[in-house]
Simulated scan of single mutants.
Amino acid sequence: MTSRILLVSPAMSVSLRQARFDDGGSLDDGGAALARSAAGSLPPGARVLLSPGARCRETARALGLDAEPAADLAGLDVGRWRGRGLDEVGAAEPEAVGRWLADPACAPHGGESVLDLCARIGRWLDGTRSAEGRTLAVVEPEVVRAAVVGALGLSAALFWRLDVPPLTVTELSGRAGRWNLRLGRPLGAPGAD
């Protein structure tokens, strides 16, 4: 049996455009319009899930998906940095940001470490191995990164070297204890099925 998971990154939001840690804000107008234009471009899923954040909910709605929030698929908890700009945090706490970007076990913001996120998403991936049919999930970019790290058995130190553009699909297909990967197809482009 082959497991198939399509991970859809959310459309552009104001926070993302301003390089701020997610603050629960909405999609920007352009991101919402792009998501609406991609409605109908995804194959049906036996399960349709989403990260519980606003931009994932709004992206799923714009894509015409009836998705269930899944706490296991929540984005990285950045604690007290939530809503702050990366430049702002970098200026106020340069050593903490440097440690955080270099050491996946570090969580100077008081939230979740990258290593913890990768472990959480790895457990979720393991739980989907026996699932029948396709799983479709609209998830934060860091969840996609963590899934790729887990699926390929990469070091969590590579987490920040994986770019996940808005409104792209990353496909994982698994069988016989391993995952294969198809990266970053823009929504609406052929080849999702």
Rank of each mutant, 00 (worst) to 15 (best):
S3P: 06
R4M: 02
I5E: 04
L6M: 11
S9G: 05
L16H: 00
F21S: 06
G24Q: 01
A39H: 04
L42N: 10
V48L: 01
L49W: 07
A54L: 09
C56F: 07
R57W: 02
A60E: 03
A60N: 03
R61H: 14
A62V: 05
A62C: 11
L63E: 02
L65K: 00
P69L: 07
A70L: 13
A74I: 13
G85W: 01
A92R: 01
E93S: 04
E93R: 06
P94F: 15
P94D: 05
E95T: 15
A96P: 02
W100K: 14
R120M: 13
R120P: 01
I121Y: 13
G122L: 08
R123V: 15
R123S: 13
S130K: 15
A131G: 12
T135P: 01
V139Q: 04
E140A: 14
V143A: 09
A146G: 05
V148G: 01
L152W: 14
L154M: 15
S155C: 03
S155N: 10
A156Y: 08
A156P: 13
A156W: 04
A157Y: 07
L158I: 12
R161Q: 06
R161W: 11
L162N: 02
P165R: 00
L167T: 01
T168K: 00
V169D: 09
L172W: 08
R175A: 03
R175H: 06
A176G: 07
G177I: 01
W179V: 02
L183S: 14
G184A: 09
G184T: 06
G184F: 13
G188V: 12
P190E: 09
P190Q: 05
P190R: 10
